[in-house]
Design a protein around this nucleic acid. Sequence first.
DNA 1: GCGAGATAGTCTCACTTGCAACTATCTAAG
DNA 2: CTTAGATAGTTGCAAGTGAGACTATCTCGC
Lengths: 158, 158
Amino acid sequence: MAKLDLFKFVPFRLNRLGAEVSAALSNEYRARYGLDIPEWRVIATLGFRDEACSAQYIAQCTRTHKSTISRAVTALLERALIARVENADDRREFRLALTAAGHALYEELIPCLLRREQEILGCLTPQERKEFARLLGKLEDNLDLVRAPRPMSEVEVY
Amino acid sequence: MAKLDLFKFVPFRLNRLGAEVSAALSNEYRARYGLDIPEWRVIATLGFRDEACSAQYIAQCTRTHKSTISRAVTALLERALIARVENADDRREFRLALTAAGHALYEELIPCLLRREQEILGCLTPQERKEFARLLGKLEDNLDLVRAPRPMSEVEVY
DNA sequence: GCGAGATAGTCTCACTTGCAACTATCTAAG
DNA sequence: CTTAGATAGTTGCAAGTGAGACTATCTCGC
């Protein structure tokens, strides 16, 4: 007579918590700037890194399907929040970067998102947060999830 | 010059980890039994609880939209994994319960899912797992996520 | 008992997303 | 140089999902 209490089942809890937290956060940038999650991921990746990067790189980093990234990129190009230039070395790919407007949006959004993160983590002591982050890291490693952002030169060696 | 490293941003990490873990698990019951996530949630809820419950109750417990649960229920009824009876007290709702076949499936699936959970958590020491579960609980509380399964009588008092 | 508002469940619609096919381009082997 | 296979990015298509309308039923106040 095996039983499984969904409320004690970590995969279910992680899925639910992840979805809930994501929804809470995405309200922030959807309401303010009309960005959806994939669009935000593109902005976040380009904003964090200084060099321009390819759509493929963003897809790998954020573990988002390339077609989803492609659509997000198209939308952001139309809004002139990012720009792209052909890569002379490899004409299949484009180098993407934030425009001035995109950068301004990024700078404006970041503090607000970090604040929301702190609200969510607010129920944990500083020590607990550190521990939680550490345990998340172990789980990510275990799932082979970690795809650290690296200079494009390294990534291209894939 | 605020910056945000997606890889250190807990909401992103939670979302990604939750999706990844869920995908790993759902492969298990999709491949073996052709169940999708909402269908599994219905089975899991009915299997864990002994009394029959309403679709609404399952939706609230699992935090899944009622239309999604409705579709899952329809599919499971067609496959005769669950059965429903009209509730004489309230003819708007139906009481749902596993059939013998549904129960057999549940009993077969549970150990397998618990094993997968242990694989995922395998990188943590027993103490770390306990701590992780505790911290998850605090975060859930903070997001007002906890909807503990209760006897129907209590739930109906909503 | 009657009407207003709440609730259970179903259904349609619009939207999102993953998949896979496709084009263009690159790389490597011969 | 040529050709086969890999890769970047786009697009059409199908499946899944949430929002909200809708029907039937219940509840509460009068």
